[in-house]
Write a protein that binds this DNA or RNA. Sequence first.
DNA 1: GGATCCTGTGACGAACCGGTGACCGCCCCG
DNA 2: CGGGGCGGTCACCGGTTCGTCACAGGATCC
Lengths: 230, 230
Amino acid sequence: MSALILVAEDDENQAELVRRYLEQDHHRVVVVHDGRDALDVVRDQRPELVVLDLMLPGLGGLDVCRALRADSDVLVLMLTARSTEDDLLHGLGIGADDYMTKPFSPRELVARVRTLLRRRPAARAAPLLRVGPIVVDPVRHEVTVRGSLVECTPGEFGLLAVLASEVNRVFTREQLLDRMHGDSYLTTRTIDTHVKNLRRKIETNSRTPEHLVTVYGIGYKLTAGRADAP
Amino acid sequence: MSALILVAEDDENQAELVRRYLEQDHHRVVVVHDGRDALDVVRDQRPELVVLDLMLPGLGGLDVCRALRADSDVLVLMLTARSTEDDLLHGLGIGADDYMTKPFSPRELVARVRTLLRRRPAARAAPLLRVGPIVVDPVRHEVTVRGSLVECTPGEFGLLAVLASEVNRVFTREQLLDRMHGDSYLTTRTIDTHVKNLRRKIETNSRTPEHLVTVYGIGYKLTAGRADAP
DNA sequence: GGATCCTGTGACGAACCGGTGACCGCCCCG
DNA sequence: CGGGGCGGTCACCGGTTCGTCACAGGATCC
């Protein structure tokens, strides 16, 4: 868990102090003392996080932050000297990811940096189910087909999730009912109806299904369809 | 200084003893008897500290500790039966924050818990939670939407903070109640009411929510709204 | 100690979804 | 080529879930 971090800080002593602590935490550190330099470094070296002093010559920290937010998703940890500036920062809703008021303990800064970086792999351990152009996200409860979101009812989502859990495997209607509701045997027509509604949503032509395929006499399966390159 | 503490302990008597002492010290306590349950609770309820028995059915304490270290910064206080295991633990350098050998006095355990919790004053870094135009500041207990401050009741703030902790993730009402109150199951209507009040405050049109979205049959989630490419 | 605010709850209407039977068309097999 | 079975579709009813409201008890803050 090491990262490239830019420290944009006017005061050289402070900057070096921060550098030392961050490097002790196994990060690579670049220091600048000026707003314009900060933007250049972000553009050229793509750090993952910027420790940004609000009071910066050249461009102010606020302007830098705005510029960063405009066209990058770098993390920003803002440093402010007084709480009044802090209020300003807050009120404007400038997109810093975290902030600290001076004076601060370098250890706390390291801790906050660590927390921010940890959150970085945001979709952590998200078991996405991919079947060709179909993506099922159980955590978000979302279905995406060829990149666009598809609204699903709970039943449809459940059915699709079961089918997507094992691509190309044929499930009988009984198995599908089992995995969806656990118990309580229902009519097989129920599955058929859900299949119909799902096909409307995920197939380009529901008359000729390419993904949600019927296996005559057995049940249904989910396949990737033809070679697709999204 | 009160915290949510998970006690993962095989022996029920021992577990209840520990629970009683910790609750006397004004902590909220959740008890599990199994390694997998422990991981589930940490994921769902985010305790600040885990009292972890080394000998645990399901997953061993060591495995649990490793898993915890992998993706959380929860404190771990390891309990070991014999000093040989203690040595082993030490030797492996598994990242427990402290450990005790059985038998131990419950008072000593309480004292160590207190020390661990105190040892990290600001170390528990609380970065801003940003979800589109919504910014949640756990430190100040403030919420801003599109730059302007929004007054929130404690309940509303708690709910919003939980939802904002994982953008786009769908939480069931039970999970939300869990993370807000730790225990004590309440009516799901409670969540609905808070949602209603929150929508009034953060949505431009509470009739057509863009951020605090209902997932029918499941629960609620918080999304950034329009056009976002992470 | 009193006023204010918040929280939790039951009730109720509205919106939504799920399951079913009927009917028809299609597919396999003899 | 024809029959029997299987799958597709449709509309509808019942049940569940959700949104909203008003209210009572409790916590909080002067």
